[in-house]
Computed example of a mutant assay.
Amino acid sequence: MLRRGFLKFLVATPLGRFLSGVLAASTSSLAIYFHVSHTDVKRGAAGGERVIALPYPRLRGSVSVEEALANRRSVREFREEPLTLEELGQILWAAYGISEVTYGLRTAPSAGAQYPLELYAVVGERGVEAQGGFLTPGVYHYDPHAHTISLRKEGDYRRELYHAALDQIWVLTAPVSLVFTAVYSRTARVYGERGRVRYVPMDLGHAGQNVYLQATAMGLGTVAVGAFYDEEVARILDLPAEETPLYIMPIGRPLTRYRLAEDELVRYFERRRRR
């Protein structure tokens, strides 16, 4: 589905006029931007895959943005407790879900609204409570437009993912690990090599911070893992050739929770102002 209305709006802005001027010398590049269909919109569950409708995301919480920022830490030790299906759905939505319903825009900004990322959840045995039982362990793909997950591979792949991630134990002990992948061509077809080396990593950073802040607000914890064997992670997830794994983010309940008090922060600043 082509987002023509959004593109017309973009061109009407100063940024859009600037981009149009830059691309005027390359009619083919401008045509690509205006006539390409978004791959992520067309992608859904393959035939026979089990699709799970996630509980609808909440748009209000009890923790402010300021509190989440203050208490965000990288967490590497987790309790032996599952997530709920609602918690998993909320995390997935915060990471890369729909936050604007006219054009299907996301919770994370993306250069040219090309949305090159895909998101998977590697769910362990008894890793997610669902409907009085537990979600089948396996590799799930997130569909942001339907807010559903589809089971791509059945089985507990945490140990394989742990070995692929250079034996980082938190990948093994967390009940769920999110895995971000990128289809670089979605952004590169508009922005060329700059899209590949600069804009896609920016997209990943935005989405990763969303996961951190939402997890913190929910009393959960995560850590961004970038050290792993790409080919092994791609094999575990059965990724198509055009997808590249970028981030593993284990999610769970922290063994200990960090809390920053306002007076601690004030004392920190005051000590440095007196130097």
Rank of each mutant, 00 (worst) to 15 (best):
T84M: 02
A174E: 02
L69G: 05
H147C: 12
V190Y: 07
G155E: 00
A31T: 15
G138C: 08
Q114T: 15
Q168V: 06
T187D: 07
P240H: 13
Y212R: 05
L85A: 05
V128A: 06
V11A: 13
L23Q: 08
I52Q: 01
A188I: 13
F9W: 14
P175V: 14
T244C: 04
R73E: 07
V190P: 04
R60D: 08
E77S: 12
H163F: 15
I98Y: 01
Y212K: 10
P137A: 09
P14D: 07
L54K: 06
Y56F: 09
S62D: 11
V179T: 13
L117V: 03
R257H: 13
H206K: 01
R17I: 00
V128H: 09
Y115C: 07
E232C: 09
R274S: 13
P201H: 07
R58M: 09
R106C: 02
A25Y: 08
D156H: 11
L30N: 11
R152N: 01
G112P: 04
Q90N: 07
G112K: 03
S74V: 10
A53H: 06
G221Q: 06
F228E: 10
L7H: 13
T13L: 10
R194A: 01
E231S: 10
E242R: 03
L151W: 03
Y191I: 11
A12I: 02
A234E: 10
K8S: 01
P109H: 02
A241H: 05
E118K: 00
P254C: 09
R194C: 04
R235L: 08
G47N: 12
L105P: 05
R58D: 14
H206L: 00
Y142A: 09
A174V: 03
E270S: 10
Y103V: 00
V36R: 15
V139Q: 06
V41S: 11
A215I: 09
F9Y: 14
I52F: 06
Y162S: 05
A207L: 12
T187N: 01
V176M: 07
D263F: 05
R274K: 08
R152A: 08
V36G: 04
L7I: 15
R253P: 03
A113W: 06
G89D: 07
L105Y: 06
D203S: 14
V233T: 12
G48F: 10
I169G: 11
R198H: 00
G221P: 07
V65G: 10
R235G: 11
I52R: 03
F34T: 12
R159T: 12
H38T: 01
E81G: 09
T107S: 10
S29H: 13
R235M: 10
S185V: 10
P245S: 06
G226Q: 00
M249K: 00
Y33L: 13
F228C: 03
Y268H: 08
T222C: 01
V101Y: 13
A46C: 00
Y247S: 07
I251G: 11
T84C: 06
A261C: 03
Y229K: 14
A146D: 11
G208A: 14
M202Q: 07
L54N: 05
L265C: 00
E67A: 12
Q131E: 15
G208K: 01
L246T: 12
I91M: 07
A207V: 08
P175A: 15
G48I: 00
P245I: 04
S28E: 15
D156R: 06
P116S: 03
P250F: 06
G132F: 11
R58P: 02
D167L: 12
L166R: 14
Y142Q: 03
A31S: 15
E77N: 11
T148R: 14
